[in-house]
């Protein structure tokens, strides 16, 4: 067997190969890293937006048959000062155009009736912050979300989660139009907060 047939790569061949491969691999690595970072970020945004959207629609479906005259909001200090309520936390009639985080109403039962008494018992939407979170614009429980909590539907002593991982919930009645806004905050890689919201508008048909 001759010496020439057993030889491997020459140093020159290896150098040429490395010179060809290294820049290509560096570019590919950079592209892959940037792309995967963007994909993860896009995925998180899409997931949050979809969750907010679905939750807002779900809350809207419950609120839609609500009787306009039965809508109530919880009184705050300003309401007491303005003689709109006797004490903070009392259920009072909503002020046109004002935004609140809690809402109570009664719905049409769905049975055909000319009787105004045919309404459900009071139903309330209440925002409850997660136990490990504090209202401080920070991710206290380390799950990437800021000040998140749940929107609960309370009725007849029952509690149902209508939306989770949301930062806040707003209800606003203007005329017969009810506006529901759900919001969420996400911690980005750099540590900044990216906020999202989803709005659902309803025309309340029942008096």
């Amino acid at each position: 067997m001759s010496k020439s047939t057993q030889q491997g790569f020459t140093l020159l061949e290896v150098m040429i190969t490395i010179a060809l491969v290294l820049p290509s691999m560096a570019v590919i690595f950079m592209c892959t890293e940037r792309t995967s970072r963007n994909i993860v970020a896009d995925d998180n945004v899409a997931k949050i937006m979809e969750t907010l959207q679905r939750s807002a629609v779900r809350i809207g479906q419950i609120a839609r048959p609500g009787s306009l005259s039965s809508f109530r909001v919880k009184a705050n200090e300003d309401d007491v000062l303005n003689a709109m309520a006797n004490q903070v936390g009392e259920w009072m009639e909503p002020i046109d155009g004002q935004t609140r985080s809690t809402m109570q109403f009664r719905s049409a039962t769905g049975r055909l009736s000319m009787n105004a008494q045919g309404l459900t018992s009071p139903r309330s939407f209440v925002f409850v912050m997660d136990t490990e979170e504090e209202d401080n614009d920070e991710d206290d429980d380390g799950d990437g979300l800021v000040d998140e909590g749940k929107v609960m539907l309370e009725y007849d002593g029952n509690q149902v989660v209508m939306a989770s991982n949301v930062e806040g919930c707003e209800f606003n009645i203007t005329g017969r139009t009810l506006r529901i806004v759900l919001s969420a905050g996400l911690i980005r890689r750099g540590g900044s907060i990216q906020r999202f919201s989803s709005e659902e508008t309803l025309y309340l048909r029942n008096n």
Binding site: T35, I39, D42, D43, M49, T177, E199, E200, T201, Y203
Partner: peptide, 27 residues
């Protein structure tokens, strides 16, 4: 795939705006 996600996100925004505008028009 990522681009498709963005398109989907844009469609969700457009859909919500259409639905909300229709509800406002009822008012």
């Amino acid at each position: 795939h990522s681009a498709q996600r963005r398109v989907h996100g844009e469609q969700i925004l457009a859909m919500a705006a259409c639905r909300n505008t229709l509800e406002q028009l009822r008012g």
